[in-house]
């Protein structure tokens, strides 16, 4: 009975985190992006600096009519948002935020493979949406999504493999237990590759070709309205949280910090994740969208060689230490 309660409590907490943190990131994006462009951003909803803007947006989305195009493949069209969103929920389950046993939703032996595999599944949602919408812009968006995923999954995996080699384990808490501060300069190239490839996999600007609004309206999500559209947006922000959390855990040492590791390790994790989320927003504001061929070129001619070089470096250092 106690075990059941424990599992239920963990699930509830993870679900709450999953519902709240992406909204916090979204609100931060509203405000940071506004100020980076010399604007104020939302100011009314909720009274104080528009803190409840996303809640209001959610209410608005819930009120909208849920339209399914006449020619669409109904069932797949309606299933796609869930397929896009659920994997991120599962990934958050596996990210450890503190050193103790209770600070992770579920310890998974092959943690790296789990998170990368499940994140890859999330893209299936975009593909299904793109195909099932019976809209040529949606189809183009789906195609671009697929091409982008195929190109960026590889450098992401290679960069993660480099960390796994360094730690000698593929379990996320295991990697953090093995972490030393000098891994930071050692794995810095891998960290950059992982972060950039993750951004591309999430279709965040400047890698937002699949939803390029000036070219293909909103890509795979063109035909969506109401709550289903909101779920896609939520998936994007949950993806940011997951990517930043993973980069923190794999490359920035998670709960390790200059001081206060024992009791306040989770603060370090959250702090690093928050800084990375800020960087994600910062990059979105700063850079224009890449063109499709530039996107592919970046993946195949820059990121993959860099990731391979990182693996070679990791191997050499590892052998030298032993």
């Amino acid at each position: 009975m106690n075990d059941v309660l424990d599992v239920a409590l963990r699930l509830v907490i993870v679900f709450a985190v999953f519902m709240v943190v992406p909204l916090v990131v979204g609100q931060a994006e509203h405000k940071v992006m506004a100020h980076m462009q010399g604007r104020l951003g939302p100011m009314y909803a909720g009274g104080f600096h528009g803190w409840a803007q996303l809640v209001a947006d959610g209410v608005k989305f819930a009120q909208k009519e849920d339209v399914v195009p006449a020619d669409a493949d109904r069932r797949i069209f309606q299933l796609a948002p869930a397929v896009a969103l659920l994997p991120y929920l599962l990934v958050i389950l596996a990210i450890p935020i503190g050193p103790s046993e209770g600070a992770v939703g579920q310890v998974i032996d092959a943690g790296i493979f789990f998170v990368l595999a499940v994140m890859g599944v999330g893209v299936l949602g975009s593909l299904m949406a793109g195909w099932a919408s019976a809209n040529k812009f949606s189809l183009l968006g789906g195609l671009r999504t697929a091409a982008q995923l195929l190109a960026y999954e590889l450098p992401m995996l290679l960069a993660a493999a480099s960390v796994a080699m360094a730690a000698g384990t593929v379990s996320l808490p295991g990697i953090l237990n093995a972490f030393e501060w000098w891994w930071l300069p050692w794995q810095i190239v891998g960290a950059l590759v992982f972060f950039v490839a993750g951004l591309a996999e999430l279709q965040r600007p400047p890698f937002d070709m699949p939803v390029a609004d000036s070219e293909i309206i909103f890509g795979a999500y063109t035909e969506y309205t109401g709550l289903r559209f909101a779920l896609f947006l939520l998936a994007e922000y949950a993806g940011i949280v997951v990517l930043c959390g993973l980069t923190t855990v794999l490359f920035l040492g998670g709960w390790h910090g200059p001081f206060g590791e024992d009791g306040l390790g989770w603060v370090w994790t959250l702090l690093k994740t928050g800084v990375l989320a800020f960087v994600v927003i910062w990059l979105r504001v700063t850079y224009p969208r890449l063109r499709e061929d530039q996107l592919q070129k970046l993946a195949w001619t820059t990121l993959i060689p860099l990731a391979l070089a990182q693996i070679a470096l990791t191997g050499i250092v590892k052998v030298a230490i032993n």
């Binding site: 100020h35 010399g38 604007r39 990059l283 700063t286 850079y287």
Partner: peptide
Amino acid sequence: GLAKGLAVTLRTMTKRTVTAQY
């Protein structure tokens, strides 16, 4: 060039906004 772009947006963020709260 990439760093310069990041610097521009960061600097803008620390400046006063130009929004008129009409």
